[in-house]
Measured scan of single mutants.
Amino acid sequence: VTTYKLVINGKTLKGETTTKAVDAETSEKAFKQYANDNGVDGVWTYDDATKTFTVTEMV
């Protein structure tokens, strides 16, 4: 189990959250659901070296 981080650069929501998951794909699903639940829709990137997802909304 690995800890993954999500950085949110939204128009109205900014911040970070973490989750523990067995792999990046599992954490990505959880993070995308979290973003969707909070009305964040944007461009996703992933940095495997830091286990960090970033979602950026276009303004």
Score class of each variant (00 low, 15 high):
residue 1 V to G: 10
residue 54 T to D: 02
residue 32 K to D: 01
residue 53 F to T: 01
residue 36 N to W: 14
residue 14 K to Y: 10
residue 7 V to S: 04
residue 14 K to N: 08
residue 51 K to N: 08
residue 44 W to P: 01
residue 45 T to L: 06
residue 56 T to Y: 08
residue 12 T to R: 07
residue 2 T to R: 09
residue 11 K to R: 11
residue 6 L to Q: 02
residue 16 E to Y: 13
residue 59 V to K: 09
residue 1 V to Y: 14
residue 18 T to Y: 15
residue 55 V to E: 00
residue 15 G to N: 08
residue 15 G to L: 15
residue 44 W to K: 01
residue 57 E to I: 09
residue 58 M to K: 10
residue 59 V to H: 13
residue 25 E to G: 08
residue 21 A to E: 05
residue 49 A to G: 08
residue 4 Y to N: 02
residue 20 K to G: 06
residue 34 Y to P: 01
residue 55 V to N: 02
residue 28 E to W: 15
residue 49 A to Q: 11
residue 19 T to W: 12
residue 50 T to V: 05
residue 34 Y to F: 12
residue 41 D to K: 13
residue 4 Y to Q: 02
residue 46 Y to V: 01
residue 4 Y to I: 03
residue 39 G to F: 06
residue 31 F to Y: 02
residue 59 V to N: 12
residue 29 K to A: 11
residue 9 N to D: 09
residue 33 Q to C: 06
residue 17 T to D: 03
residue 1 V to W: 14
residue 32 K to I: 08
residue 12 T to F: 14
residue 2 T to W: 12
residue 54 T to K: 04
residue 2 T to Q: 13
residue 3 T to S: 07
residue 58 M to E: 13
residue 13 L to D: 05
residue 40 V to K: 02
residue 48 D to R: 06
residue 28 E to L: 15
residue 20 K to A: 11
residue 9 N to Y: 13
residue 34 Y to E: 01
residue 6 L to S: 01
residue 59 V to E: 14
residue 57 E to G: 05
residue 30 A to S: 09
residue 35 A to D: 00
residue 20 K to R: 12
residue 5 K to D: 02
residue 47 D to H: 05
residue 42 G to V: 02
residue 30 A to V: 15
residue 12 T to W: 13
residue 53 F to G: 00
residue 20 K to L: 14
residue 25 E to A: 14
residue 35 A to T: 07
residue 12 T to P: 04
residue 8 I to E: 02
residue 6 L to N: 01
residue 12 T to Q: 10
residue 42 G to M: 02
residue 26 T to K: 06
residue 25 E to R: 10
residue 1 V to P: 10
residue 54 T to F: 10
residue 55 V to K: 01
residue 45 T to K: 06
residue 15 G to K: 13
residue 58 M to H: 13
residue 35 A to I: 08
residue 59 V to D: 14
residue 8 I to L: 08
residue 44 W to R: 00
residue 42 G to C: 04
residue 41 D to E: 13
residue 7 V to W: 04
residue 48 D to M: 07
residue 2 T to E: 11
residue 27 S to F: 03
residue 31 F to G: 00
residue 55 V to A: 02
residue 57 E to L: 07
residue 19 T to G: 05
residue 14 K to E: 05
residue 6 L to P: 02
residue 48 D to C: 06
residue 42 G to W: 06
residue 10 G to C: 14
residue 41 D to I: 14
residue 14 K to H: 10
residue 55 V to H: 01
residue 49 A to R: 10
residue 16 E to D: 06
residue 4 Y to A: 02
residue 18 T to S: 11
residue 49 A to E: 12
residue 34 Y to I: 07
residue 56 T to A: 04
residue 51 K to D: 02
residue 49 A to W: 07
residue 55 V to T: 02
residue 27 S to A: 15
residue 48 D to L: 06
residue 10 G to W: 05
residue 13 L to Y: 14
residue 41 D to L: 11
residue 43 V to P: 03
residue 5 K to Q: 05
residue 1 V to M: 15
residue 55 V to L: 11
residue 21 A to M: 04
residue 10 G to Q: 05
residue 57 E to N: 04
residue 23 D to R: 04
residue 44 W to S: 00
residue 22 V to Y: 12
residue 49 A to M: 11
residue 52 T to L: 03
residue 43 V to D: 08
residue 32 K to W: 07
residue 29 K to Y: 07
residue 52 T to C: 04
residue 29 K to W: 07
residue 38 N to G: 04
residue 45 T to A: 09
residue 8 I to K: 00
residue 53 F to K: 00
residue 10 G to L: 15
residue 37 D to P: 01
residue 26 T to I: 06
residue 12 T to I: 11
residue 4 Y to L: 02
residue 47 D to V: 04
residue 33 Q to L: 09
residue 57 E to Y: 07
residue 31 F to P: 02
residue 58 M to I: 14
residue 50 T to G: 04
residue 13 L to A: 08
residue 16 E to N: 08
residue 50 T to F: 04
residue 39 G to M: 06
residue 23 D to Q: 03
residue 27 S to W: 04
residue 58 M to R: 11
residue 26 T to V: 08
residue 13 L to R: 05
residue 39 G to K: 07
residue 1 V to K: 10
residue 27 S to G: 13
residue 14 K to D: 05
residue 49 A to T: 12
residue 36 N to P: 01
residue 44 W to A: 00
residue 26 T to W: 06
residue 14 K to Q: 11
residue 8 I to D: 02
residue 28 E to I: 10
residue 55 V to I: 10
residue 49 A to Y: 09
residue 3 T to Y: 07
residue 20 K to E: 14
residue 15 G to M: 15
residue 30 A to T: 14
residue 4 Y to S: 03
residue 5 K to H: 12
residue 28 E to P: 01
residue 18 T to V: 09
residue 4 Y to P: 02
residue 12 T to V: 11
residue 38 N to V: 14
residue 20 K to V: 14
residue 5 K to E: 03
residue 45 T to G: 05
residue 26 T to N: 07
residue 45 T to V: 08
residue 24 A to G: 05
residue 51 K to C: 06
residue 5 K to C: 08
residue 53 F to C: 03
residue 17 T to Y: 15
residue 25 E to P: 08
residue 56 T to C: 06
residue 25 E to K: 11
residue 48 D to I: 07
residue 7 V to Y: 08
residue 52 T to K: 02
residue 59 V to I: 12
residue 52 T to N: 01
residue 19 T to P: 02
residue 26 T to R: 05
residue 24 A to T: 09
residue 28 E to M: 15
residue 35 A to W: 03
residue 11 K to D: 07
residue 25 E to Y: 12
residue 42 G to S: 01
residue 35 A to Y: 02
residue 37 D to Q: 11
residue 35 A to H: 03
residue 47 D to N: 09
residue 7 V to P: 00
residue 25 E to I: 11
residue 5 K to G: 03
residue 50 T to E: 06
residue 24 A to F: 14
residue 42 G to I: 02
residue 46 Y to L: 01
residue 37 D to V: 08
residue 28 E to A: 11
residue 44 W to M: 03
residue 9 N to G: 04
residue 40 V to G: 01
residue 51 K to F: 09
residue 25 E to Q: 13
residue 46 Y to S: 01
residue 39 G to S: 06
residue 38 N to M: 15
residue 46 Y to M: 01
residue 12 T to L: 12
residue 15 G to R: 12
residue 20 K to H: 12
residue 41 D to G: 08
residue 57 E to C: 06
residue 23 D to Y: 03
residue 19 T to C: 15
residue 43 V to M: 09
residue 8 I to W: 09
residue 32 K to S: 03
residue 52 T to R: 02
residue 21 A to N: 05
residue 45 T to M: 08
residue 5 K to R: 12
residue 31 F to N: 01
residue 9 N to K: 11
residue 39 G to T: 03
residue 52 T to I: 05
residue 58 M to V: 13
residue 54 T to S: 05
residue 37 D to E: 14
residue 38 N to C: 13
residue 7 V to N: 05
residue 28 E to S: 08
residue 23 D to P: 00
residue 55 V to Q: 00
residue 43 V to G: 04
residue 35 A to E: 01
residue 41 D to F: 14
residue 9 N to F: 13
residue 9 N to H: 09
residue 46 Y to G: 01
residue 44 W to H: 00
residue 52 T to S: 04
residue 34 Y to A: 02
residue 41 D to V: 14
residue 18 T to G: 04
